[in-house]
Design a protein around this nucleic acid. Structure first.
Lengths: 205, 205
DNA sequence: ACACCTATGTGGACGGTGTCCACATTTTTC
DNA sequence: GAAAAATGTGGACACCGTCCACATAGGTGT
């Protein structure tokens, strides 16, 4: 932490977000501490207030970054197994759960600030500009278009899918299911993914 | 807050938990503040350390109380609509979501302290001694016994069901789906409950 | 080129919090 | 009835979020 020679920092806002993300990685939303972030960036605590109204504002920015990272992971998984329409939803599920388990702290921070507005911002998108929610929603549209998902089951389907995936992620990382052996977790994920498909389209298989 | 006349409090541990639950109701897990709890009970801050090792220990006790309250709500809903085996799972779902929406702060606090051990304690049970998890699990056993749920789908079924219900609860209260109109929320709950049933038993209806 | 204005960073302070230590008081135990 | 254990008090420390006044840098208009 050599003291910078310019009085100005250059891009303090961004630097603070990066530091905040690192803190969230290490200890979840509660670990996103204003003073510690400024300390890591090498700046006085109050400097943060020129860029964020509040600790909550910083946390919100960190949350966006986390959501973007989540979307990125999902997109990456999607790119790996694109061919059958059916497999896309599974890939997204895999990405969601993989991210939550690989980065539990950041995942928790991503959903720490509430409100749909936060989740649907441009800041919260992956490389191709879609949020996690939109990725899921689009996959369901594809399923409908391809005839795998009957149109009468389409409404509210993303609530079901998202709830199941998100709930699984929360229970696995944060919640009472953490500490499951990796083997068990994997099997559980498979079973849950199966159940999601069945829940969507009763006539499948 | 009349100063008590006995030097000893009587049952400080319990009083602190009650105060903690109240704090959780008002502002979630972060609002469970040691000093404030002692203040409300009318006792010096350090007195808490005779009964709890830590702030986290108090929060854990509050969490147990919250889980017990959740189980109680589920049991109550179960008692209201007992007849057909199928309806029991729906009643439990309704109870879970109703509690989460009625007491979002306490609900969050209930799942704030992690680890399966915490969730399965005796402290975390409803009136008839079953935890939320066990209530769900038992309902699934009943479904299997009555033939509605094929035995080959029984394993890991509680993970699916719990994930979906819990995810829905989190997204509705904490998460991006909060702010949904009550009507929408109700419709979403119905759809999700339908999907859960379909996800469990492919041959239903 | 100079003076101003605004954006940005600094320093110091305040109240609040978790937690530690030493001490006081009550209850229990022998 | 004295010793020991349990319980509550008081004071202190470090840390945090946040407010205020001040210092400095980068631009802007004349």
């Amino acid at each position: 932490m050599a003291p910078r020679e310019t009085y100005r920092h250059g891009n303090l806002r961004h630097a603070l977000i990066v530091a905040g993300v690192e803190l969230a990685r290490e200890g979840g939303p509660d670990a996103v501490v204003l003073r510690e972030a400024t300390r890591r960036v090498g700046v006085a605590p109050n400097a943060a207030y020129r860029h964020f109204a509040d600790r909550r504002a910083l946390l919100s920015a960190v949350s966006q970054a986390g959501l973007a990272e989540l979307a990125r992971t999902m997109e990456r998984e999607l790119a790996k197994a694109p061919s059958p329409v059916r497999a896309r939803l599974r890939a997204l599920t895999r990405g969601y759960l993989a991210f939550a388990q690989a980065e539990p702290g950041l995942f928790r921070a991503a959903f720490a600030t509430t409100g749909m507005a936060d989740t649907d911002t441009d800041e919260a998108t992956g490389p191709d500009g879609r949020t996690a929610y939109r990725l899921l929603s689009d996959a369901l549209d594809d399923l409908t278009a391809s005839g795998a998902l009957p149109p009468e089951h389409r409404p509210y389907a993303e609530y079901f899918v998202w709830s199941t995936i998100h709930g699984m992620a929360v229970l696995l990382t944060d919640g009472p299911l953490r500490g499951l052996l990796p083997v068990e977790a994997e099997e559980a994920e498979r079973r849950v993914a199966d159940a999601i498909e069945r829940g969507l389209c009763p006539t499948s298989e």
